[in-house]
Design a protein around this nucleic acid. Structure first.
Lengths: 234, 234
DNA sequence: GGAATAGTGTCTCTAAGACAATATGGA
DNA sequence: TCCATATTGTCTTAGAGACACTATTCC
């Protein structure tokens, strides 16, 4: 009965609006990023449904109005269902829209950025973003480019890159990740250490060290749930 | 005939999806901001339609899939129709969504920030944002708060506030606007002058000066279409 | 001349960057 | 021992901030 009501509502919506306001398609797409082989990469999944069935693209799907409380929830559900991932860093990138981007018609896609250390992936195609993968479905190239730009820009003044690190990491390893993201040759480790520690965004894991053929390095973990902001830049 | 087809399509969408994927309502809302009486203010319009008919809220409306090429176009149309404004600074703030925010049902609203000098307004209720207006419809309070936060944060390192200035303005007037937005007491004018001029984001209007009971001040205009970014902060 | 603000110059001090010095493990 | 990298410390320098000084108008 409730379904019938919704159907009638949907029907009358079109009529009362004089057919001008039929609703757009509403989806979410996730730019799931990680670092692999010293480069930023994006997870691509083989599409099971039309359109573009069989092609590799961003994980995404319809908003399920009976299941998702909001767009964030839809994004987390897609991450769960398509990538079997929970508890990852997730932020809304923006909404991509228009009459042309989806062959099914006028569509709105809430695009999200998710960041994850490489060790949490299994059996996924991780595509390099430089150069961009060819022939992605929909406007996924545009979305990925915007995501990369956002991550690069935000990394200049925040601890966003810590979400690409495994649970425990050394300061030098974190510095290396900043260098890869920001495409900077050599960030001085001494200065980097002071800035990141002054911010108190990471904390030492007592007694745990990274060993090797050198002086052992203190291991750190992220000390805050969200990103922290620098006064100026890295 | 085309209308009938769309109607059938809409109908069959619900059926084939087993009633799980009926589409959300899709709207746009504009946070139209300006400076008046040394304070940031937001334009509110009286709603003509249900829900919340008669209440004052952000200008907004349905996405018209037969009329708007994308969400940006929908936002510009709303600005034209409700505020009779063209050619204003417009940026996407984010998308606000959920099952609860609109009594009509699950909805997605693409929220936009528009900035405008006060002299371009006519007959509009400009509401102070500190404190926030009471009892706004939908989640407009949340949207406005997010807009204010975005404008404040972005003003720290960009020339965004120039879009709140009239065509011609002095450097001291621009400094005053930064002070209001950033809630800083006294930004040193000499340092501000050097930074803003080094960026080449504004240019002098030859021969035009602001006069008064003091040495005349050079008038400037914005030299670039978009915002420019500072290396560090204001 | 006095008041008011525009615009320029100068001094100080902080902090970023470069890099030297020292520490500590493994081979 | 040497090698490699971690960690700390020091020096230099650019730039931000404070503020003094000069300029130019109206009264």
């Amino acid at each position: 009965m409730q379904n019938l009501n919704i159907l009638i509502e949907q029907f009358s919506y079109g009529i009362t609006a004089g057919m001008k306001n039929e609703k757009p398609i509403a989806t979410v797409d996730i730019v799931l990023m990680t670092l692999q082989d010293d480069a930023l990469r994006v997870a691509l999944y083989e599409r099971e449904n039309e359109p573009f069935s069989g092609a590799f693209g961003l994980p995404g799907g319809y908003v399920h109005v009976n299941e998702d409380n909001d767009l964030d929830a839809a994004a987390r559900r897609v991450l769960r269902e398509k990538a079997m991932l929970k508890g990852v860093y997730l932020e809304q990138l923006g909404t991509f829209s228009g009459v042309k981007r989806d062959p099914r018609g006028w569509s709105l896609s809430g695009a999200y950025i998710a960041l994850l250390p490489e060790d949490r992936f299994e059996d996924v195609r991780l595509a390099s973003v430089d150069p961009m993968p060819r022939k992605l479905p929909f406007d996924h190239s545009t979305i990925i480019k915007a995501a990369i730009a956002r991550v690069r820009q935000k990394s200049v003044y925040s601890t966003l890159p810590t979400f690409l690190m495994p649970n425990e990491f050394t300061i030098a390893e974190l510095r290396d990740v900043y260098q890869i993201i920001l495409q900077i040759e050599k960030i001085d480790l001494a200065g980097f250490r002071k800035k990141i520690l002054d911010l108190r965004a990471i904390e030492p894991v007592d007694g745990k060290m990274r060993t090797g053929t050198h002086r052992p390095a203190q291991l750190y973990r992220r000390a805050v749930k969200d990103i922290a902001l620098f006064d100026r830049t890295i």
